[in-house]
Design a binder for these strands. Structure first.
Lengths: 227, 227
DNA sequence: GTAAATATTGACTATCAGTCATAAATTATA
DNA sequence: TATAATTTATGACTGATAGTCAATATTTAC
């Protein structure tokens, strides 16, 4: 019976079409401002049909956001797999995340909602699970990098790689989320460029987690990058 | 005419009563789950009356949150005014924020909403302004501390105190917000204690922003604190 | 004591997520 | 091919809730 397979394919295709429509809507309006009716209209389907494919508005939102996370993963993974040194990879990771922030800002912006605790109440267990799984994929790239660096002796091995990953990821994401909403305000009020603040923050943290060996390689790369 | 003054006092008093009621509600339920009708019932007033005193649900929420920020300020300010050394003050600031997180968790939890960009759409300009003003008050304590430390030569003076304040505040707040919602998950999954991660993060950043002079004082204090 | 001003009310409106009985379309059976 | 069974789609409806406003009650001024 190829019929069930075809039906399954068609179902997945329809789900993607709904996401295409939802993405157009969520790129224009944030979660609360966007309505399910708008998404249905954009998808040229009735609202009831949407609910045959997704369990809630939050599920649809997360599914679009996961496209964004997947895209970030696709950008980070090749760095991880490349032949660069660990220090170079760390710098590339950060540059890549910043580049993602700049060019895929509408996806990045959706990450704001991951923070809101109430949001997850309406998310189905399956969606939450796929989302965590994808998070962990990205996560493991960072942890992997830190572990390699510790083994090679460029990162301090007295630190816990998971803890350092949390620290780095939290601080970078927090500053980018802040930059997303406040970059103009800081520029005007105190002439501070939040993207530059991120560079300073990274520089402080990188130096702090590196060994002398790591730092010497890092400083050479940094100087080479500044021109 | 003392009547207008009395009326003004009564109006302020009523606003506080509404906040008392709103606080009880928001301490139990997060923003979306709490309803204005519930707050009205808790205040023993009709919903219409609430809107004579506050312009929106968001305004009421922010007003309660500002009580929480005020309370934090009241705890931080004495540290700033004390005769301790700058390094000691920095450590006390962090300990104080962590203590606030633990004992005033319900206020702290409300901070989650400050991040959400859509939230501010419904906030009146006046409320936004009072809120920013209060933020700046807390903010200036941190910046003041950093500036003093730079003058005394315990903090690196090649760094911009405003930028360092953003970095410290962002990273501490981001880790505490994460701890608020994920502390059990990390404990179970990888046996990682997010409160400890905060200590590690602070240690990395503090060392990174200090001069040799600062670090030597810091290390003495840290060792004294560990017993 | 009465008129004007002020404060309060709660029924009403508008909006929107999610549902479900009904209808259309597709597939299986005779 | 005709009909029954199954699957997919619909949109009017429900329930929840933020915010409004004409009507009412209370307080102040004369």
């Amino acid at each position: 019976m190829g019929i069930n397979e075809r039906k399954e394919r068609e179902r997945e295709h329809r789900k993607e079409e709904i996401l295409d429509a939802a993405q157009r809507v969520f790129f224009e309006k944030e979660f609360t401002a966007a309505t399910v009716d708008e998404i249905a209209e954009a998808a040229e389907l009735s609202k009831g049909t949407l609910y045959l494919y997704y369990k809630s508005k939050e599920d649809i939102y997360l599914a679009v956001m996961m496209r964004g996370m997947e895209k970030l993963y696709e950008k980070l993974e090749p760095i991880s797999a490349s032949g660069s040194t660990t220090i170079q990879k760390l710098l590339n990771f950060c540059e890549c995340y910043k580049e993602y922030f700049r060019s895929d800002r509408r996806y990045f912006r959706m990450f704001h909602f991951l923070q809101a605790p109430h949001f997850h109440k309406q998310v189905s267990d399956e969606m939450n699970e796929s989302c965590s799984q994808l998070s962990r994929k990205i996560w493991s790239l960072v942890v992997g990098l830190l572990k390699s660096g510790m083994e090679e002796g460029v990162f301090r091995s007295d630190l816990n790689p998971f803890e350092v990953a949390i620290i780095l990821w939290s601080s970078i994401t927090a500053l980018l989320l802040r930059a997303d909403t406040e970059i103009e305000a800081w520029k005007e009020r105190l002439n501070i460029d939040l993207e530059n603040v991120l560079d300073v923050s990274n520089d402080l943290l990188f130096n702090a987690i590196m060994t002398d060996k790591g730092r010497s390689e890092y400083n050479i790369l940094i100087k080479a990058g500044q021109h």
